[in-house]
């Protein structure tokens, strides 16, 4: 993935930042430019907690060139607890362990590599939550 795009999407990728309608309060990830509920164009940044549940998942055995080195890997749709649904990879879990409805939390991980000399792209993935120590 190209450097300008990585830079442009940095807040979404590293912070899970979306936005919220200032008029009706609706939350969005990724960011929208007009509220799809009330058509208000005034929206403020909103950082999601990164907590959610698995809506659906799949294990990928055949991938595009920049993801080839990672197969098999797991992709999923995650329902964030604040509402929006996010498309992402799962991490720290093997294919047989994933279930629809299981809780997950966001982590920042390596997403892809643009060849030997290219950029290493980082971004959000989701993993089973690790309980905080007392």
């Amino acid at each position: 993935m190209d450097i300008p795009r990585t830079w442009r999407l940095r807040d979404q990728r590293y912070l899970l930042q979306g936005n919220q309608c200032e008029e009706c309060g609706e939350l969005y990830f990724p960011k929208v430019f007009i509220c799809h509920k009330c058509r208000c164009r005034s929206l403020k940044d909103y950082q999601f907690s990164g907590r959610g549940t698995v809506y659906s998942y799949s294990t990928v055995y055949q991938a595009a060139p920049n993801f080839d080195a990672f197969v098999p890997y797991i992709v999923a749709l995650i329902d964030l607890k604040e509402g929006p649904r996010v498309t992402a990879q799962l991490s720290d879990i093997s294919p047989g362990e994933v279930e629809i409805g299981m809780p997950v939390e966001m982590v920042v991980r390596k997403i892809s590599e643009d060849g030997e000399r290219g950029v290493i792209n980082y971004g959000y993935k989701f993993r089973p939550p690790i309980p905080l120590e007392e």
Binding site: M1, R5, Y55, S56, V75, L77, Q89, I100, G123
Partner: peptide, 16 residues
Amino acid sequence: SMGLSFVAINALLMQR
């Protein structure tokens, strides 16, 4: 760019 091929997207639908 998150690693979803077109097949993977359809797989998410089928699984659900």
